[in-house]
Design a protein around this nucleic acid. Sequence first.
DNA 1: GGGGTGCATGAAAAG
DNA 2: TTTTCATGCACCCCA
Length: 917
Amino acid sequence: MAMPGGVAPVVAMRCTNPACGATATGGGGDWRKGWPLRSGGFALLCDKCGLAYEQFVFCDIFHQKESGWRDCSFCGKRLHCGCVASKNSYDLLDSGGVQCVSCMKNSTAHSVTASGQVVPKLFPCQNNLRFFGKSDELLSGRKFEQSPSLMLDPRNEDIAIVNKSNHPFMVKGIEAGQSSSILRQKEIENGARQIKWEQPTLSIGDMGRPFLTRSQSALEPPQYTRRDDNKDPTTDSTTSESISEACLSMSLGIAHNGNRMEATSTVERPILSPTTAIAEGRELTTTLSPFQHAQRARHFLTRPPRVGEGAVFDPTKDIFPHLRVARPPAEGRGRNQLLPRYWPRITDQELQQISGDSNSTIVPLFEKVLSASDAGRIGRLVLPKACAEAYFPPISQPEGRPLTIQDARGKEWHFQFRFWPNNNSRMYVLEGVTPCIQSLQLQAGDTVTFSRIEPGGKLVMGFRKATNTVSLPDSQISAIANGSLLSETLFSTANENLGVADKFGSRPDEGSLQFLQKRSRNIGSKSRRFLMDSEDAMELKLTWEEAQELLRPAPTAKPTIVMIEDYEFEEYDEPPVFAKRSIFTIRATGEQDQWIQCDDCSKWRRLPLTIIVASKWTCTDNSWDPKSCSCSAPEELTPKELQSVLQQYEEMRRRKGSYGLKLNVAEMDASSLDALATAAVFGDVGNQGTASVATTTKHPRHRPGCTCIVCIQPPSGKGPKHNPACTCNVCMTVRRRFKTLMMRKKQRQSEREEAEASKKIAWVNRDEPEGSNLSRSPQTLDTTRDSSDVTMLDKVADMNKGHIDLNFHPAARDDHQGQHGAPQARPPPASMMGLLEVANRPLDNYMKQNGLTSLAGEQAGGSSSTATVPPAPVESEERTSNEVRVASVEREPEAMAVDEAVGDNQQDKGVDDAAAT
DNA sequence: GGGGTGCATGAAAAG
DNA sequence: TTTTCATGCACCCCA
């Protein structure tokens, strides 16, 4: 493998670390990334020394605090790193050692670039890691993921590792048993890092202690004991044992404390093999500076994150406080392939919940976001193959084996752990999970976490509800565990997507991000097939409705009016835009207003119709009305007017909601008729105020500025009167639509009639001899007559009484009758053609023939028509408040046709009124 | 007929 | 291109 910068390759490397003893290829494995370099990149370590590195990397510069001294790695000057006076007298080296101030100043002068510059003096490495190599040998097939420059010491052919800033260092081994203390970044300035020493907390010996015990969780500062410095970690029995199941913690919970970042611990995991320990990139047990997090954790990845690279880690921002993302223990089969999505992210609370009060150690294994299938009634939880093979008992037969898993409450659940052959592979499932799922009230999207209690190896399962679930994309999960997921990236994303949360003052915390991530994941992956329960559906519905309410045509969008079956549709080429919620009103003069509420003073301000306001708007943004451009300006609407408007608005919303959820078409008709009556009523009272109060029933497509027939029509009874014989566009359209409406009703009736007649004929033909139907009595014929005819006759009767029941529906006949009390004497049967003739009559003519003048008159006169056309309660109030007409912003599409007809009727009423006058 | 079981399928992710 | 896995569905068993 060619080295970056044209460095002579080296093939034979040997580690002189007595604890390592690896030769040639580094102990049989690849060279691996060691500790991160200050300026980026990583040291190179063989497999075995990688283990050593893991043991000492965070301890070396601290361990002497108790003993009070530390040698500079360059000049050998003894530093008293434990004393206050010397705290700023040295610097942390990329090599893992420390450097005195003098050497710090001189270090760059000794740098040699990878292009062949002189390598500075390399300091003797006593019992430290050292690489040997020969310049004429190739270092092929090596992995240098971070590609630190590898240089040869011209004198001893040792390999010097030169970081990207040409800062050389010699791999500095650390004696076993070195202790550590909390490293905190005091300041990062000009690339020179000053470190601050604080109390020691950890010894290397403790790093070998397996797992995180309850008492050692982040909830309490760990009280690690100092290990014997003289012991070799790899030879020490305790450590050796712990190596085999070692745990190294990884700290990602960085609490923001003023200008200082405090790293919190930790979720630990065991590591079986030193080799895999390095390969897996073990978590590191100590508290780290953000800088260290950003760098050291990088090598945890088996693959680089796809996001966040290139961004800058900003330690001033919080990043997932209390959230632990742990690489699962590298053990068992397939340990190396566990996808980050299954890495257990566990909180302190969960740890506490699982471990309870015991001193047991929790080893998070993996987690799984429940799919719809998992949470469904099938009772099968699909296990990730890698997880199942790595952490669950091996099974060779598809039948599997019983598995007992304890939940956080201590209750044991018995599952069947098995697999199905699938595409030359296996599909692992946990069967019998339904009782557990139900008991824990888990749903699709919730997360189940599998852990293991040590000692004992008992499996435990925790869970997180979806609202608290972090379901990060793998790349981000990787980056979190990696320390390279940048808070800025996360939060910018969160802020962009969670403006509402921010709006309420809550910073984009874990929950927000969780929501974000959950959503993105659900949409972007197979999880989008998650079953939505009713609650989710409701949430979606509400969101949708609200979104609909905020939808506006783009300011520059000009609709194209098209006629489809006599209905006008506004078509927009441009997508709608989101706007701040506003209320549209119609004055008695027909003028429309848009009212919007100031986010500061909550006063309502009048805006031009065409203005689309962004999510936040204040009076100061009101450039259209200088008188109201300040919150101190009085509100234009009187309290009474405002109350009326808001009441109508809320009522409108409520009704819209009921449309969307409950009403069928017939009910929509009723509502539309209701609106018709309301409009008529308000048309009458509209004269009383400066603005009329009438609820129009505009469809959402009728936007401010719309010039369609519905929008341009004057309020009922207002404006210029039309002659009954008026042939203007409005009147013609009104007549045409009424005709169309009635025709459609008749057509539907006819279709039902024919369908039922066919059924009856078929029934008769089946049950009776041919011709027997002729024997039926007239009464039978009458009863078998399609009820629609009767209903239609009832309808005509109603109409003859002065009521136009557009809510007429055969299915609602009984109700209809009941609404009118006892069934009335039926008029003579009418033929279909007769009914059509009735339907074809122009509404105005028909109403005149039936002695009708206006619906408003009927309604306002308190006639019995209220039984047919009951006004909404709010609308009744509107009669008295009657100031402003609230224009509906949207309606269900299905109601549009009726709305159009309603508008037509309004038009006709106006026309008819004109005729009456 | 309903529920459980085992397998197949295909979309999405990973390599 | 391969692998994973969520889900559909046919089949079987049982009430």
